[in-house]
């Protein structure tokens, strides 16, 4: 049986022993960095989307459900999100020569008053530049999502949304981000990454 009598001071450590701990510490830190990268890859990996007709190239979060069958260029939804499905949507609308972003925002709001419950604009901010320094306007809003199956029992969800509007060559690009109000802040990182990868041509 190998045993060591406890003395009054710490035993002197050999070079190898100290090296073992340093290497273990270094390995652990390195492994945590790898873990962080894996986390970023898992959370924020993207799928490329390109629409030559609309002149849009984007990177949307991988494994979000892609849909281009509606009245929009495309829409992606995080179907694995429990509760309201976090959504990013890009839409193009024609705009007249005299049309301003403000008038478009008003038109959008009027449409939403007709279709969304408890729709409320929080603020309109003209400070979000898009890719290629395209000037844009941001509108933040909330509503109660009541889109439901009448045969099920669902409670409305408070949804926070952000629209970014940019007028571009006779068209207005509307980039929309929607998320459950409780997860909006954490999910917003997806939208920021999406915006950083968005290109117009």
């Amino acid at each position: 049986m190998t045993f060591i009598e406890l003395g009054s001071g710490s035993p002197d450590l050999s070079y190898r022993q100290r090296a073992s701990h340093v290497i273990a510490l270094a390995f652990a830190v390195f492994a945590l960095v790898i873990g962080y990268n894996l986390r970023n890859t898992g959370l924020f990996s993207t799928t490329r989307y390109e629409n030559v007709e609309a002149g849009i190239r984007a990177e949307y979060p991988r494994n979000w459900l892609f849909d281009n069958q509606g009245d929009y260029v495309f829409r992606v939804r995080n179907m694995t999100r429990v509760g309201f499905k976090t959504t990013i949507q890009v839409e193009l609308r024609p705009v007249g020569a005299a049309g301003s972003t403000r008038s478009i925002l008003d038109a959008i709001s009027l449409e939403r008053f007709q279709s969304l419950a408890a729709y409320q604009v929080i603020n309109v901010d003209a400070s979000t530049p898009l890719a290629d320094d395209i000037e844009s306007v941001t509108m933040a809003y909330t509503y109660a999502d009541t889109d439901r199956d009448p045969f099920l029992q669902s409670i409305p969800t408070v949804v926070r949304g952000v629209d970014i509007l940019a007028v571009r060559g006779g068209q207005v690009v509307i980039i929309t981000f929607l998320a459950d109000a409780t997860t909006f802040e954490s999910d917003y990182a997806f939208f920021e990454r999406f915006l950083s990868g968005l290109e117009f041509r």
């Binding site: 049986m1 060591i4 009598e5 710490s10 492994a31 945590l32 873990g35 894996l38």
Partner: peptide
């Protein structure tokens, strides 16, 4: 392995390393 595993084991290693090792390691 690189998230839960390394976090838990690294923490446990650190605790033992700095609370009991080497002074209180008398036998294997």
């Amino acid at each position: 392995t690189f998230t839960v595993g390394i976090t838990q084991e690294f923490l446990k290693y650190l605790v033992v390393r700095y609370v009991a090792w080497p002074d209180h390691f008398r036998i294997r």
